[in-house]
């Protein structure tokens, strides 16, 4: 039998693990989608109405599905990828699927902030599409991308608490278990405060890095 402290420590670890894992894979999936949205937009570098529309609709659908429902819906996918439907690692699957469209939008809006003139200058120098994406858009939007990533982390952390409901573990699961099922409000509050602290840490660290990397400030 675990002590309560052990459980909470484990909960913190599971929450951080799910959040970071899901954010990482969320970006693996969402970042390219964000680029596609920016590039294929009618004002982008490679306008393509059909591709834009498809990705646009897919991301909108992904974003409008409530996470609790998506989690249950994608259980077959989770089982297919992870071999099981419960546990923190398995919870990463629905988290990624839910976060990716959201991340795609964040990335899209960051990339759209890049000065058109700078992109045009790169084109005038004979930069290829990849060079523009990699050496211009990614570099110029990095502050905004990092700010976006801190927002993504906080949101995914919130989702991960829900993942507790279907056996994902983490602080959310403990809060529900003690607070909702056993009416132990004290433990619930401890979990809530820990979640707030985690969000704060992500936020502060993210903003610090973003600011440190921004060269537009004299």
């Amino acid at each position: 039998m675990y002590t309560l402290t052990d459980q909470i420590l484990r909960g913190i670890w599971e929450t951080v693990y799910m959040t970071l894992g899901a954010t990482f894979f969320g970006y693996v999936l969402g970042m390219p989608l964000g680029f596609v949205l920016t590039m294929c937009h009618k004002k982008g570098l490679r306008p393509h109405p059909v591709i834009y529309r498809i990705v646009d609709i897919v991301t909108n659908i992904g974003r409008s599905l409530p996470f609790v429902i998506l989690m249950v819906l994608v259980i077959p996918v989770t089982v297919f990828i992870m071999g099981k439907s419960y546990g923190s690692t398995a919870a990463i699957v629905p988290l990624v699927l839910s976060a990716a469209p959201f991340i795609a939008r964040l990335v899209e809006s960051s990339l759209n902030e890049v000065d058109r003139g700078v992109i045009e200058a790169a084109e005038s120098m004979g930069a290829s599409l990849w060079q523009i994406m990699y050496r211009v858009m990614l570099v110029e939007s990095r502050t905004s991308l990092i700010t976006g990533a801190t927002i993504a982390l906080s949101t995914i952390l919130g989702y991960s608490a829900m993942a507790g409901a279907i056996g994902g573990g983490g602080l959310g699961a403990i809060a529900i278990q003690y607070g909702y099922q056993r009416y132990d409000v004290k433990i619930m509050w401890i979990c809530v405060i820990l979640l707030i602290v985690l969000v704060q840490i992500f936020q502060v660290v993210g903003m610090y890095i973003a600011r440190k990397l921004d060269r537009r400030i004299v």
Binding site: D115, V118, A121, G126, E140
Partner: peptide, 25 residues
């Protein structure tokens, strides 16, 4: 596209708003 990019190395351009990469030295 490739040939055009090669040619653009020989036709440089400067702009009203300079269009420098703000995050680079």
């Amino acid at each position: 596209r490739k040939e055009l990019n090669d040619l653009r190395h020989k036709t440089a351009m400067i702009f009203q708003h300079f269009n420098l990469l703000m995050q680079k030295t």
